[in-house]
Computed example of a mutant assay.
Amino acid sequence: MKFLEYTSLDRINDFLSHLNLGERTMKGCLEAYSCKHTGTDKRLSVSLENELLDCLGRSSDPDSPALAEHLCSRSSRKTLIYLILTLYQMYPDYDFSAVNAHQFFISETRDSFEQIFDSYMSEASKLWVESYGGSSLLEDLYKALDEVVKLSECEIYSYNPDCDADPFLQRGAIWSFNFFFYNRKLKRVVSLCFSCISNLAVDEYLADELGFEEDGEIFDNMDI
């Protein structure tokens, strides 16, 4: 996987890097990648393929026929591998070996994505119009995505990580969403993550940490 630079994505990333709304801070990030494998990707891809096949062989859950059918398709397994490799690129220090296929919701529609975006990013959208005028944040986001991955040809996936193993979940997080726009023809994927952090929770944590450090300094100066 190779990171791709686009000015249109940088503009939105700069805006979403730190939106302080008083008690809350909203953050967002867009990253584009080519799905062409590097040497490391090839080894990891083979490992993931074997794991998925093992999972398929062990799958006997009658309540999950869609998942089993999805894993039976080599094309679907390949897509899932690309998405996991993208996660590794985004968070190189994090281990995604435990990620399961059911954590990716396949074939998200643009309507469902827009509903989530409009509901949770409405304040950010207002600030975008105030800052840049003209088109809405969603419209400019779509223009940027269309430039990189041809939005009309994309499959949209959402990723729902386990709470105990969520690299997106920061201290004080109120909510977070993770989407992937994948173009099979171009072999290119764009990740979109946006979240909301409680400034109050972060401030309390920093205050606790400062208090702990000060207590430590006091005890350091005491004779035992």
Rank of each mutant, 00 (worst) to 15 (best):
D220Q: 09
H102L: 06
F179I: 06
L4I: 13
P65C: 02
N183Y: 11
L9Y: 09
E204L: 07
K185P: 05
G57Q: 03
I106S: 04
E155W: 06
R184V: 15
I197M: 02
L200V: 06
H70G: 10
L200Q: 03
A98H: 10
S152F: 06
I218E: 13
L141Y: 01
F212S: 05
G28K: 12
N178M: 14
K27M: 15
Y205N: 01
Y157F: 11
C55Y: 06
A201H: 02
K78Y: 14
N221F: 13
F104M: 03
I224L: 04
G39A: 08
S195M: 05
S73G: 05
I156C: 02
M222N: 05
D14F: 15
E69N: 13
H37E: 12
E204G: 01
C163L: 05
V99H: 06
G216T: 15
K126R: 04
A165F: 06
K187I: 15
Q89K: 03
S59E: 00
S45T: 06
E49H: 06
R188W: 15
I197D: 00
M222R: 09
D93V: 13
S17M: 12
V190G: 07
Q89I: 09
F219C: 10
S34V: 14
A165L: 04
R58C: 01
C163R: 03
K150A: 11
D93M: 12
A32I: 11
